[in-house]
Design a protein around this nucleic acid. Structure first.
Lengths: 153, 153
DNA sequence: CTCGGAGTTGAAGCGCACTTCAACTCAAGG
DNA sequence: CCTTGAGTTGAAGTGCGCTTCAACTCCGAG
């Protein structure tokens, strides 16, 4: 049988560290069964899941959202290429939006290089609302202040 | 005098929390002088710095790199619009590259939706080398394994 | 049977970008 | 003078995505 990969094999074939694979499993992103001696064995189909996870991360999706997406796959049968394609399409929109925002940022940056302003509310550049910055890590519990002052410079 | 903002004022005008401003100052990204009673006072020029910091973060630059960039500003005189433009231009290249990579990811994703492969080394999609994923947070001490296996599926 | 490499676990650590807290001082209005 | 709101500090906490460690077991070759 060429089914059933060990964690080391899955790691080697996916390029993802064993520790990360165990972590994914704890979060419910991938699944395994166990041998008599309590070792993990992965079905080959899990390779696709890992691929999907890493690709999704590049799109900028959090593990939690990836888990939600994977949960929407049919659990009874092994997912078909079409199933995967459906998930990928969802990410495509995100990717488009992300590219759009970065493009806008670039244009605005160009504009501001031209005018030399780099002031906060003046140009569209500094728009906390549609920010991409929210992607970053870190505790972000403080509410965004909706007002920001309107006395002139 | 309308020089010298309190931390609260700088926060209100920049949209950045006071705690974050103190944090930036600890890291050497912005500067202040103190009143007799040990309170921070910010020159108006710091507003531009804060703007630059937030914009840079949207471009995906780390605070450490932003600090390095800010350190390259002339310290003797107040930076001119041209000085800021020079810094912004450096980010532009990053932004272009980032947009390019995301565009490639999108195209590859489209291709893979078409072929339904989503396999790891098969398509250009899964290329750990030029990854954007390195942006993300987290400990990333494990070396990327350059080999990834070559037994066939 | 022995050995070493691969696997197991839970708990702790890391890096980033902050926030939160407690305990305190400062500054301005009534 | 008193109060209240804004500011100060250092230390600790938060969230994400992992890695690292210690102490252990499993498995296959010799």
């Amino acid at each position: 049988m060429h089914e059933a990969l060990t964690i080391g094999q899955l790691s080697a074939r996916s390029g993802v560290a064993p520790s990360a694979l165990r972590y994914y499993e704890r979060l419910g992103l991938i699944r395994s069964h166990r041998t008599g001696g309590n070792q993990r064995r992965y079905a080959r189909a899990e390779l696709r899941r890992v691929a999907f996870i890493r690709i999704s991360q590049q799109v900028g999706v959090s593990l939690d959202e990836i888990r939600a997406a994977l949960d929407s796959l049919p659990s009874s049968r092994t997912p078909t290429p079409d199933d995967w394609a459906a998930l990928s399409r969802a990410w495509r929109d995100r990717l488009d939006e992300k590219i759009r925002l970065l493009g806008k940022l670039r244009d605005d940056l160009d504009g501001c290089i031209g005018c030399g302003c780099l002031s906060l509310q003046r140009c569209t550049l500094y728009n906390p609302a549609d920010s991409l910055a929210a992607e970053g890590p870190g505790a972000r519990l403080m509410l965004p202040r909706p007002d920001a002052d309107r006395a002139s410079a």
